[in-house]
Computed example of a mutant assay.
Amino acid sequence: MDGNSLIDFGSGIAVTTVGNSAPALVQAVQDQLASFTHTCFMVTPYDGYVRVAEALNRITPGDHPKRTALFNSGAEAVENAVKIARAYTGKQAVVAFDHAYHGRTNLTMAMTAKNHPYKSGFGPFAGEVYRAPMSYPFRDQGIDGPAAARRAIEVIEKQVGSENLAAVVIEPIQGEGGFVVPADGFLPALAAWCRDHDVVFVADEVQTGFARTGDLFACEHEGVVPDLIVTAKGIAGGLPLSAVTGRAEIMDAPHVGGLGGTYGGNPLACAAALAVIEMIETDGLVDRARAIGDLMAERLRKTQAADERIGDVRGRGAMLAVELVVPGTTEPDADLTRRVATAAHAKGLIVLTCGTFGNVLRFLPPLSIPDHLLIEGLDLLDTVLEESR
């Protein structure tokens, strides 16, 4: 309203992957709006829901028989994934990880690691939730992926026991926790342990899914095939939709009527999701995410070389971050991070913060962003960092 323009490095927290109000998405939703807005799939099924489920069964990792159920939000989908795993295994315990974020419902708050602002004052939380150490290369002092996995598995075996464990739930790249990319080998080792011990391996790809990381899903980077995969955010370009997709025998475990909800798989959101999936596939957005990542990572590493306050540059594809620290240390500098994000916004660049320690700037540009805006945004960031010295 004041006439300013803003370069978007946030995408509504990884939601508007195909751009804000992409014409094909708008047309698909308008067409559906003119047809009907709601029937509740559990009462009167409709084609759009089925087509989204079929598409997710096709594009998610693995060629095994799959089922999909649709919901409204990432947290709701994570919670349903836990319900499905418990029904399938007959076990109750759930393991999440340090720095994890899974949502704001009671169960997903328990699974989320960071106290403030997500959990403080909102307990008591759901029980039978346990936490294991994450692979965090910047802070792990040279511990490689397999060693970090052994460390996590040892904690799980000692504190929980596979005989009690229904599911291990993990973000292949952590989101709110700081865009933590685990060391190579960490995820495959965890998945293999789960497979050997009848534990459901759940990939929370709410923030990493739908081409964001330069693969259609982040777990594909190391060839990990989850038993259940949770998606939301970028799935429908801004309309509320989420999904749990997984092995048919696991998805079929809950009793009839055990999963559902009034709005899950809303017709408008389903129309948007079908448009988004088509745009990702026909417009080459997986490749575009890689190109964005290459351009941004090169620039950010040049900035890092000239600024010792940047302790780490990390991420994959168009999901990148810098961790800001006290120079010469790994001590988090959350105050600097807040000041940089605020100053960037004032200059016309939307950047988001994250991290357990509040010291990470994260970058999630829409995959439709042209190079000239990407470069202009990075120039603005360099200016802000220089002025913040």
Rank of each mutant, 00 (worst) to 15 (best):
V15S: 15
V276W: 05
E386K: 15
T337W: 05
A113W: 14
A346W: 06
A318R: 07
A34H: 15
K302G: 06
L295T: 08
A81Y: 11
G209I: 01
Q207R: 02
T245H: 01
C40F: 11
C270Y: 06
D98V: 10
K119H: 02
G161A: 10
R195Q: 14
A243R: 06
P146T: 10
P254N: 13
F41W: 09
D335A: 12
S11C: 07
G48D: 06
E128M: 11
V43I: 12
V94D: 02
T108E: 15
F210I: 06
L228K: 04
E376D: 06
V286W: 09
G284E: 02
V326C: 08
S35V: 03
I13Y: 11
A334I: 06
E386Y: 14
V155T: 12
A189Q: 03
L324K: 03
T356M: 12
I153P: 04
G234P: 15
V181H: 11
G317L: 02
I170E: 01
A183G: 14
D184F: 10
A275I: 09
V168Q: 09
G311L: 04
N164A: 07
A24H: 11
D8K: 08
T282K: 15
M251W: 10
L361V: 12
R67M: 11
N4M: 12
L300V: 07
R362N: 03
G127V: 01
G123D: 05
Q141F: 13
L268K: 10
S162H: 14
T383A: 06
A191E: 05
Q27R: 15
E387V: 01
L324H: 05
I250S: 04
D204W: 07
A34R: 15
V322W: 01
H38F: 15
G103W: 07
A93P: 02
K91C: 04
A166S: 13
R212T: 08
A291E: 11
A147Y: 02
V94Q: 03
R314V: 03
G358F: 07
P240A: 14
G74R: 04
V18Q: 12
Q174G: 08
T105P: 02
F179K: 01
F71Y: 06
P45S: 07
D204P: 10
P146L: 00
I13T: 13
V26Q: 09
A100T: 04
K119W: 02
G234M: 13
D2E: 09
A291Q: 12
L320D: 00
P61F: 05
K158L: 15
I156M: 14
L336M: 07
L367N: 09
D335V: 15
F71S: 08
A166E: 13
G328L: 12
V155R: 02
P188A: 14
D31C: 09
T337L: 01
D144K: 00
A343W: 00
R212W: 01
I369C: 09
T112E: 13
I277W: 04
A273K: 00
A93K: 01
A344N: 13
C219D: 00
G328C: 07
D198A: 12
H116E: 13
V78P: 05
R290M: 05
A192Y: 05
V26W: 04
D215Q: 10
A343F: 06
Q159A: 10
F122Q: 15
V15P: 03
D184W: 11
I375C: 01
S35W: 07
Q92E: 12
G258V: 10
N164L: 05
E331N: 13
T60R: 00
L324Q: 07
L259Y: 03
